[in-house]
Write a protein that binds this DNA or RNA. Structure first.
Lengths: 368, 368
DNA sequence: GACACGTCTGACAACGTTGTCAATGTGCAC
DNA sequence: GTGCACATTGACAACGTTGTCAGACGTGTC
């Protein structure tokens, strides 16, 4: 019965001519100089926004640049100035939403400042990561690196990079400026976790489960500290049976939730260390026929798009990941070019904001 | 009651010295030449794997390279050879899972072939996209571009790039090699959509709703054609009321599903053009108290991670996105360096595979 | 009018590599 | 031994830009 549409086999192709790229005689600094009737160097000065060029000269050169639609050749520039106008972004994160946000933030900053970006996903567990990064920087003459967690939190790596004269900015989880001498942009996970826990407490929950994220990420203990600290402030004893170790994954959320459900005195709310964990909890609740939020409140962390799309939509904490990444890159670039008019090269903190949706609700009167 | 942990203010930082990067006297081709007691050019030949270097000479040079831990300077290389060993990846896709997969696939190929990668997310709706891409290629001397949908499907753009001597490979949706003279790697969406529809039919479904994806993507009509073609092969009349236009989004899935639910003769299965749409359908079903899969079967497309994580897990079609992207990049690079021992520069097709999960089940006997 | 000083500009070399082309060595046929 | 083809190697220039340093010019002072 079934008739597939026809399928062509692989077909040899030999379209455009091989060999060198047809560079359509792109104008060089030389052409601009000739047209503006100045020397090469003066054009160079205008391009690089150096001082000490008379206004009328600058205008003349600029006009020539515009007319010729000239753009400096990056390769030549990189070679001569011994540093590319490009930075690297180093990450090892399984969450595509996070990675894309970081990329876009950094890219925005790069675009803004006329820098290029080299992405470098990597495996944070390989032993010679430090060398890998040094080679990367030196081979491509990267001007600096933006380090995302967990690389940004490995001090031996940080020290190695610094010792090798490599500039970088870390995106890290911390309650305050670490002030360890290395530049960073920090996310106050603890604070936000406090807010989420407090929200659950204020809904009347007393038994609140906590599912840890990955041990490799500093954000995980930070979030736990926020949870712990809120319980303490509201005089709720911490029940260790309600705290389950695990990873930042759906599966660990699912498994962790099942362990909590099996408890004699089951929690009325569960705080998953990120949205994926919370999604796992949600799935486990459904599998066990537990109604959310009526019988169980669930909160996540991160405000991933699917936290909006689950059913019910997840209460979570919204990280301005793109902003954070953008700021990190700007901070790096600001340090790179002291002349730059950009951001001051100063550490800065960001606090995720509580987002209340439908997965959390008032607690039932406990059975007691 | 509430006591937040202390928060430090922004703190000025002035760590490493500003100015030029501390280049620790990286070895150059000159050092290698001196050590191996050969000329610069010979070293260059070894590096570039050119023929006509005697084996013992090659060994000597290679040893020197290893001993000095020499790596060629990209900037100089790019400048001299008038083409960087780097390609660009151009995409405009809201789905991070897709983008990351494509990035990783292309990166793998680049790494393999000693190429760099410049990512270039863009807005496919801006009018001067063509110029933007040309400038990108020329300014950074990109050797070529990998174009993801929907850019890869806009023929006026394709023709412009080709006319400007820019090399590229398209990742496109097509039932067969388009054979339009421009290189591509194609994904047979139609075939896979046929499989999904057939799967539903074989479960006994006769009234199958179809939710379109974005009009800007060619994959959307392709998937529809697969749906249409399967219905035809099984002699099921196409009911236009069951076909709903929309975008590749959760919201359109939700809305589309509600329109279908409102029908007098409600479908017993819905095929969403991608997993996000299907997730929207799932949410709508839950909101309307419709049991999935007992009362309604739902199928998606793409095998996004959350298709596994929804409840019930979605039946879908798995695209080997990373492989496809890797192959696209290899195909591009193969064309770039005729000397390369890599893949033959030949168009190639990939078919997504049906993945059956829990959101589809045998249809109930219709009320008729 | 000479001088010093600051502002602005240009000549030239250099960055590290590869393309061009010529020079040298090697093996073989005569 | 000579000549020739071919394999192998090297000298040199060039890619497009910026750093260095010196020169030209203008302005104010004595």
């Amino acid at each position: 019965m079934r008739r597939r549409h026809p399928r062509a086999g692989d077909v040899g192709y030999d379209g455009a001519k091989p060999g060198r790229q047809a560079q359509v005689n792109r104008p060089t600094i030389k052409d601009v100089a000739r047209r503006a009737n100045v020397s090469l160097k003066t054009v160079s000065r205008v391009i690089n926004n150096e001082t000490s060029v008379r206004d009328d000269t600058r205008d003349r050169v600029q006009r020539a640049i515009d007319e010729l639609n000239y753009a400096p050749d990056q390769a030549a520039r990189n070679l001569r100035s011994a540093t590319s106008h490009a930075i690297g972004l180093v990450y090892d994160n399984p969450n595509p939403y996070y990675v894309i946000s970081v990329q876009n933030g950094v890219l925005a900053a790069c675009h803004d400042q006329g820098f290029g970006l080299q992405i470098h996903p990597c495996d944070s567990t390989v032993p010679d990561l430090a060398d890998e990064l040094r080679d990367l920087v030196q081979r491509t003459r990267l001007a600096g690196l933006v380090l995302a967690p967990p690389m940004s939190e490995r001090m031996e790596l940080i020290r190695y990079l610094a010792a090798n004269g490599i500039r970088f900015v870390r995106i890290i989880s911390a309650a305050e400026d670490p002030d360890d001498g290395y530049p960073c942009v920090y996310v106050d996970d603890r604070d936000a976790a406090y807010d989420i826990t407090e929200h659950l407490i204020q809904l009347g929950h007393q038994r609140i489960g906590f599912l840890w994220g990955g041990a490799a990420h500093r954000s995980s203990p930070e979030r736990f500290k926020g949870y712990e600290s809120a319980l303490k402030d509201y005089d709720i004893p911490l029940d260790k049976k309600l705290v389950i170790p695990g990873d930042y994954s759906f599966d660990d959320g699912f498994r962790g939730a099942r362990r909590l459900f099996a408890l004699r005195d089951r929690p009325t709310a569960i705080f998953g260390s990120n949205d994926e964990i919370a999604a796992g909890v949600l799935a486990a609740a459904k599998a066990n026929g537990i109604d959310v939020p009526y019988e169980l409140s669930i909160a996540g962390f991160e405000d991933s798009p699917f936290s909006k799309q689950s059913w019910p939509a997840l209460t979570t904490a919204k990280q301005a990941t793109e902003d954070i990444a953008r700021h990190a890159a700007l901070r790096l670039i600001a340090e790179l070019k002291p002349s730059g008019s950009g951001v001051a090269p100063v550490n800065r903190g960001f606090s995720p904001q509580l987002v209340i949706r439908d997965s959390t609700a008032r607690a039932h009167k406990p059975a007691t």
